[in-house]
Simulated assay, not measured.
Amino acid sequence: MALLKLAAVLLACGGSLVPAAASSTSSTSGAPAPVLLDCVGHPQNRPTQYVVACGDGNNYLVALHWTQWNGTAARASGTDAANDCRPYCAAGHFHRYPVEVTLDGPVSWAGHDGTVRYTRLTLDYPGDRPAGMPAHFVFPLPKGPAGATPV
């Protein structure tokens, strides 16, 4: 039941980033690489941490190691930390699961000429995963406010 709530929160809240040191990268075409927006619309490149459940923080990605970040997609391996919410979320415990992360669906970021943002996050669990979560989970990323500052 708790993981069904988690899945609902993930779908309702979209993705979010914990600010992390990141460097700008460019795709091979010379155009700026797409950005990943956090819950408040701040653009990030190659973050090492990413809050998935921005509404309550009960699911986040850590130790992200990016092997690709370009105008088509971004790929990383890392760890998904998910709260089991037992008996309820505030009293729950976080469990860690290896995960492969893909960002894709790049589109122009409205109000930010020349900046492209990823629109979709995919989580693939090669082994154990949070109870109730599918091995392959795809959900949309936030659009971000039009006034956020590009990188």
Results as ranks from 00 to 15, higher is better:
residue 71 G to C: 06
residue 120 R to T: 14
residue 39 C to L: 07
residue 80 D to N: 11
residue 99 V to R: 03
residue 79 T to D: 07
residue 100 E to T: 13
residue 71 G to M: 04
residue 18 V to S: 14
residue 15 G to Y: 01
residue 70 N to G: 08
residue 102 T to K: 14
residue 76 A to Y: 05
residue 67 T to S: 13
residue 40 V to E: 15
residue 129 R to F: 06
residue 15 G to C: 06
residue 91 A to Y: 12
residue 86 R to E: 15
residue 116 V to S: 15
residue 24 S to C: 08
residue 98 P to M: 02
residue 118 Y to W: 07
residue 74 A to M: 11
residue 112 H to W: 02
residue 66 W to L: 01
residue 114 G to V: 10
residue 79 T to W: 03
residue 39 C to T: 08
residue 50 Y to T: 06
residue 94 F to M: 11
residue 56 D to Q: 02
residue 27 S to L: 06
residue 126 P to D: 06
residue 81 A to R: 12
residue 47 P to Q: 07
residue 61 L to F: 03
residue 22 A to V: 10
residue 66 W to V: 06
residue 108 S to Q: 14
residue 21 A to T: 04
residue 66 W to D: 05
residue 123 L to H: 04
residue 62 V to E: 09
residue 129 R to N: 10
residue 27 S to Q: 15
residue 70 N to T: 11
residue 84 D to T: 02
residue 112 H to M: 05
residue 56 D to H: 04
residue 43 P to E: 07
residue 60 Y to P: 00
residue 113 D to A: 15
residue 67 T to N: 01
residue 26 S to Q: 04
residue 128 D to H: 04
residue 18 V to I: 13
residue 52 V to K: 00
residue 63 A to N: 15
residue 23 S to Y: 07
residue 49 Q to E: 01
residue 105 G to N: 12
residue 115 T to N: 10
residue 77 S to R: 15
residue 46 R to M: 12
residue 51 V to M: 09
residue 49 Q to M: 01
residue 94 F to C: 08
residue 68 Q to V: 10
residue 58 N to R: 06
residue 55 G to E: 03
residue 27 S to F: 06
residue 91 A to R: 14
residue 54 C to G: 06
residue 105 G to R: 13
residue 90 A to E: 02
residue 79 T to G: 07
residue 16 S to H: 07
residue 61 L to V: 09
residue 102 T to Q: 12
residue 36 L to H: 01
residue 129 R to T: 13
residue 42 H to E: 11
residue 69 W to E: 10
residue 64 L to C: 09
residue 17 L to P: 03
residue 67 T to M: 00
residue 110 A to I: 12
residue 114 G to Q: 14
residue 109 W to Q: 14
residue 120 R to L: 08
residue 121 L to V: 01
residue 63 A to E: 14
residue 107 V to D: 11
residue 38 D to I: 09
residue 108 S to N: 13
residue 46 R to L: 14
residue 126 P to L: 08
residue 62 V to Y: 01
residue 21 A to K: 09
residue 124 D to N: 08
residue 109 W to S: 12
residue 30 G to R: 09
residue 29 S to D: 13
residue 121 L to K: 00
residue 50 Y to C: 09
residue 53 A to Y: 02
residue 116 V to C: 11
residue 125 Y to K: 05
residue 19 P to K: 05
residue 77 S to M: 09
residue 113 D to K: 15
residue 96 R to N: 13
residue 47 P to A: 14
residue 109 W to M: 07
residue 94 F to H: 13
residue 102 T to A: 12
residue 48 T to M: 05
residue 31 A to Y: 08
residue 123 L to T: 10
residue 35 V to D: 02
residue 49 Q to N: 05
residue 57 G to R: 02
residue 18 V to F: 07
residue 91 A to Q: 15
